[in-house]
Simulated assay, not measured.
Amino acid sequence: MDNNDKLIDEVAKIYKVLSNATRIKILYFLRYQENDVQVNEIVKQLNIAQPIISKQLGILRRYQLVRNQKKGNQVFYILDDPHVVEMIDDMLNHVKHEIKGLPHPKNLY
Rank of each mutant, 00 (worst) to 15 (best):
L27T: 01
H104K: 14
I42V: 05
K100T: 08
M1S: 12
D89K: 09
K106D: 05
Y109H: 09
H83Y: 14
D80H: 13
Q33L: 06
N3D: 13
N73S: 10
H83G: 04
H104C: 04
D81A: 11
N35H: 12
R67Q: 14
I52P: 00
Y15A: 15
E98W: 08
L30I: 04
L18H: 02
L30M: 07
V75E: 13
I78C: 04
K44F: 07
K55A: 11
I52L: 09
P51E: 06
N107L: 11
Y63F: 15
I24Y: 02
V66Y: 02
N68P: 00
I26W: 03
D2F: 08
R62S: 13
R23N: 10
Y28R: 15
I8E: 10
K100C: 07
I26M: 02
K25M: 13
Y63W: 15
K70N: 12
P82M: 03
Y63A: 05
P103S: 06
P103E: 14
Q33N: 08
N73E: 12
K16Q: 15
G101V: 05
L92I: 14
Y15D: 11
R23Y: 07
Q50I: 07
V84E: 05
Y15K: 11
Q56L: 02
Y63V: 12
R31P: 00
N4P: 00
V37K: 00
E98K: 15
Q74K: 15
D89Y: 07
H104V: 06
K44G: 02
N35R: 14
H97W: 08
L46N: 02
G72L: 06
E86T: 14
P103H: 07
N20A: 10
R62G: 07
V84P: 01
P82R: 09
Q74N: 14
N68C: 10
N73Q: 03
Q45G: 06
L108C: 03
D80R: 12
Y77D: 01
Y15P: 00
H83V: 12
P103C: 08
I88H: 02
L108Y: 11
V84R: 06
M1V: 07
T22P: 01
V95S: 03
R31D: 05
I53D: 01
Q33W: 03
D2I: 09
V75H: 06
E98C: 13
K70Y: 09
K44V: 02
S54A: 14
N3M: 12
G58P: 00
K70R: 15
A21F: 12
K44Q: 10
I48G: 00
F76A: 01
H83P: 08
Y77A: 03
R67P: 00
K100F: 07
H94Q: 10
K106I: 09
E98P: 01
N73G: 05
Q69V: 09
Q56E: 15
